[in-house]
Design a protein around this nucleic acid. Structure first.
Length: 253
DNA sequence: ATGGCAAGCTAAGCTTGA
């Protein structure tokens, strides 16, 4: 069972660059997308359906902004768009599906800059999302939270931890929130298999950051501990260049 | 501290990103 999470930074942009051929070769069972930046009527979703995917598409209200999706090859028992907060759900940040196997979320957490209104929004979102997950994991013990968290958890997850102590995405409050979420019963599936530094999923488009591998690890597959014995592999696909993020592949037995 | 780049809005410059 293969699951991909990928912040595409504009689905129409990555389609032009060859996403379909790459997806075909990848043969993923589930694809969690973030920052699709398009309404369903702004592209031809049949390109995914022709590959055998059901498409759960959840754009933001604001055109060309944010938005998440899940592509699924297996039977979906239930789909949920958003998590019950109009101020968050209008931004297209969560789609959730339930299958015979597990509950899967594609999530795009807010970004901000320290001290800004959007940073406060991010903290509010994180607090409400934590409570939502705390409740959900009781109902759905097999839970996978995939997506762009906009948070580096630990110093090993960012190329220059010292310089970035004031950067949104690596603030103490955000890192503590990750401690709390993971500590509540989740496995950071990439770190479960790989303890090495210099593994990132996002690079600034400026100053040749990607060529120099000066990046941040902000895209995750968190799996509930009930799924531990099914974890097979988690791979950062850093040779895929369609977006400023790269995909992350989780394989389950 | 600043600036650097990219996607997509809408029609040359603005917003957002992290």
């Amino acid at each position: 069972m293969k699951l991909i999470t990928y912040n595409v930074n504009g689905i129409r942009s990555v389609l032009k660059k060859g996403l379909v051929d790459w997806l075909k070769a990848t043969e993923a069972d589930y694809v969690c997308l973030q920052e699709i930046k398009a309404n369903a009527d702004q592209l031809d979703l049949a390109v995914f359906e022709d590959m055998g995917y059901q498409v759960c598409w959840y754009p933001a209200e604001k055109k060309g902004y944010s938005g998440v999706a899940i592509l699924a090859k297996h039977k979906i028992n239930r789909v949920q768009y958003g998590f019950g907060f109009p101020q968050y759900d209008s931004e297209g940040r969560l789609v959730q599906i339930e299958t015979e196997d597990f509950t899967l979320l594609s999530v795009y957490m807010p970004s901000g800059t320290r001290g800004s209104v959007r940073q406060d929004f991010k903290y509010e979102w994180l607090a409400d999302f934590y409570n939502y997950i705390d409740d959900l994991k009781q109902k759905s013990p097999n839970l996978i939270i995939s997506g762009d968290y906009n948070i580096c958890h630990k110093p090993i997850d960012i190329h220059n931890p010292t310089k970035n102590t004031n950067s949104s995405g690596f603030l103490p409050e955000e890192r503590e929130w990750m401690d709390k979420l993971v500590g509540s019963g989740f496995i950071d599936t990439f770190r479960y298999f790989n303890k090495e530094p210099h593994n990132y999923t996002w690079w600034s488009t400026r100053s040749g950051s990607r060529e120099k591998n000066l990046g941040w690890r902000i895209d995750y597959h968190l799996a509930s501990e009930a799924l531990e014995n099914r974890l097979k592999r988690c791979t950062i696909l850093n040779k895929v260049f369609f977006s400023d993020h790269c995909p992350v592949l989780l394989e389950l037995n």
